[in-house]
């Protein structure tokens, strides 16, 4: 009897202790989610919510001339980030694990871009990508005798190059995670493989990569979610151009809300982005689960 009572007390204490943090979660995460849905179904002047209009806002956003471009580009960012941004850290992790000299220096060096604030990196890359003779990359190419390139203005390259800048910033920190994972691989595995006659390449593909696979799987969905929300990189670099070649869904949402004062439209777009991501997460979970079975 006494035991049960104290158990309840503990419950109460537990909830009391969780309460402040839960309020914060409610305010920053959960309530805005529902508020967005409500806003998206009403029209509004500034932040005043007026009449219920059903799905009008959704229709309007879908009919916007920029929507298709933003939608397509956002998937394009995600795909390119899976090609470039996802594989580079794995490569870095594997290759730096193979050094014994200056390993600390390499770790620090590749992590350094990660501490540089994102906005600053974008301004810096902006001047790297300047076409014409005075762009930093073109200066370097010029020294090598190569003619200046158009960089971001070549619309085939706009998105991949923006993904490169994002990878430059974030690959180092992800690589460190892979390195920690790799160094935790038991030496016995390698020894056994060597005895079986496995060469270095075989060991990479049969031991190292399978060992980091589960980590890589977790990072995959986190990467998709974060790249799907790409906003300031194309905004600062090219303002979404040239001719919408780099505009993203989040950028369009920002424009609705903060440039056109159309908070209902922005909220409708937010809800759509959320739904897309929930579908993607669901698909991912289904796929990974069925593989495990």
């Amino acid at each position: 009897m006494v035991k049960k009572k104290s158990f309840k007390r503990q419950d109460l204490w537990g909830w009391l202790i969780m309460l402040p943090s839960l309020i914060l979660f409610g305010f920053y995460v959960w309530e805005p989610l529902f508020e967005n849905v409500r806003l998206s179904l009403h029209n509004s002047i500034r932040y005043e919510v007026l009449d219920f209009v059903g799905f009008d806002n959704y229709r309007r956003v879908l009919a916007s001339p920029d929507f298709i471009a933003a939608f397509r580009n956002t998937f394009s960012y995600t795909l390119w980030s899976l090609v470039i941004g996802y594989l580079v850290p794995i490569f870095l992790g594997i290759i730096i694990s193979e050094t014994v000299h200056m390993k600390g220096f390499f770790r620090t060096g590749i992590y350094f871009p990660n501490i540089v604030p994102g906005i600053a990196t974008i301004w810096i890359w902006n001047y790297f990508f300047t076409p014409g003779a005075t762009g930093v990359l073109n200066i370097i190419l010029g020294k090598l005798g190569v003619a200046p390139l158009e960089w971001l203005n070549n619309t085939h390259w706009t998105i991949p190059l923006i993904v490169v800048t994002m990878t430059w910033k974030s690959a180092g920190s992800t690589a460190l995670i892979y390195m920690a994972n790799i160094s935790a691989i038991s030496p016995d595995l390698y020894e056994a493989a060597t005895i079986d006659g496995a060469g270095i390449w075989k060991r990479i593909f049969h031991i190292t990569i399978p060992s980091v696979f589960s980590l890589a799987k977790t990072l995959l969905i986190l990467q998709v979610i974060s790249v799907f929300q790409i906003l300031y990189e194309p905004m600062v670099l090219k303002n979404g151009g040239p001719n919408n070649a780099s505009i993203s869904l989040m950028m369009l949402q920002y424009r609705y809300a903060f440039r056109d004062f159309d908070f209902s439209g922005g909220a409708a777009l937010s809800v759509m982005i959320c739904i897309i991501l929930i579908i993607l997460s669901g698909l991912y979970m289904k796929l990974t689960r069925s593989k495990e079975d």
Partner: peptide, 13 residues
């Protein structure tokens, strides 16, 4: 905004 998009296209393509 619409004109700027056209400008960007004709100046890069």
């Amino acid at each position: 905004a619409e004109l700027t998009k056209v400008l960007q296209e004709v100046l890069t393509n």
